[in-house]
Amino acid sequence: MRHIISVLLENESGALSRVAGLFSARGYNIESLTVAPTDDPSLSRMTIVTSGSDEIVEQITKQLNKLVDVIKLLDMTAHPHIEREMALVKVRVGEAADREEVKRLTDIFRGRIIDVTQQTYVIEITGEGSKLDAFLEAVSPFPVLEVVRSGVMGIARGDVALQL
């Protein structure tokens, strides 16, 4: 089963490689991993998307907790939560008709065109992974030059909060 694990860890050099190394050393799946400092610059927050049986995910959370740089973690999957991912998509739109169609698709998916040249659009789109997949499918008839995906971020709904 797919799990989203959010981790608060010390914002120190090497902390990321401890987590990445743990996953490779123990053979755990890692679908995506995002990390950035939080509003408290001494802390980083990481979102890991992984999959495995209940036993494996239990081990993953235990092993993550065992890392000295990890302060706290939360398996989002155990709570109602919101997932978001962003994609930046560069599409070749040489013809006027293409420009209109791609603009229309972008609007339908509530994306934004954030860079325009004579030949290309860069589209910013945010949502759950499946929405991003659907958009990429929708624009696939056009020449897609580049796709950048951020990986998943997650936050629990309501009062549940991952904080110190």
Binding site: E55, E58, Q59, K62, Q63, N65, K66
Partner: peptide, 10 residues
């Protein structure tokens, strides 16, 4: 060590 528990044997 909590990670030792139920690692190999439930």
């Amino acid at each position: 060590d909590p990670s030792s528990i139920s690692k190999n044997v439930k």
